[in-house]
Computed example of a mutant assay.
Amino acid sequence: MNPIKTESINVDKVEDVRQVEQEKKQEHVGTIKFKPGHTLYEVNTVEHTIELATFEEQTVAFKDVANKPKANGFGILGFKTDKPKVILSGLPTTTKQLIKKKNCIYISALNRKNLLKKLEKRGVIKIVKAG
Rank of each mutant, 00 (worst) to 15 (best):
Q19L: 15
D16C: 11
I9K: 00
Q22S: 11
T6D: 04
E23P: 04
D16W: 10
L40V: 00
K25N: 06
P36Y: 10
K13C: 10
E23F: 00
K5P: 06
I4Q: 06
K24V: 15
H38A: 04
Q26W: 12
S8L: 07
E23V: 11
E15K: 04
G30V: 02
Q22K: 15
E23C: 03
Q19V: 13
Q19Y: 12
K35I: 14
S8T: 08
H38V: 03
N10L: 07
I9H: 04
L40M: 02
I4L: 11
G30H: 06
I9M: 06
V17W: 12
V17A: 04
T39D: 05
E27T: 14
E23T: 11
T6K: 08
G30T: 09
V11P: 15
T31Q: 03
H28V: 00
Q19G: 07
G30C: 15
E21N: 05
E23L: 06
E21F: 14
T39L: 05
D12F: 15
I9Y: 07
R18T: 14
V17Y: 13
D12R: 08
E21Y: 13
D16F: 12
K33D: 08
I4V: 08
L40P: 00
V17H: 04
K5Y: 14
K13P: 03
I9L: 13
E23H: 03
K24E: 11
V29A: 10
Q26S: 05
K5M: 02
K33P: 02
I9G: 02
E21M: 05
K25L: 08
E23D: 10
K33H: 14
E21Q: 13
P36W: 03
K5C: 02
K13A: 12
V11R: 09
D12W: 14
K5D: 12
K24M: 06
Q26N: 12
K33E: 13
I4N: 08
R18L: 07
T6M: 03
H38R: 00
D16K: 01
H28S: 03
E7C: 09
V29I: 14
V20M: 11
K24I: 15
K35V: 13
H28M: 08
T39N: 00
V17S: 02
N10T: 10
H28G: 01
K25G: 01
H38P: 02
D16E: 15
I9C: 07
P36K: 14
Q19P: 10
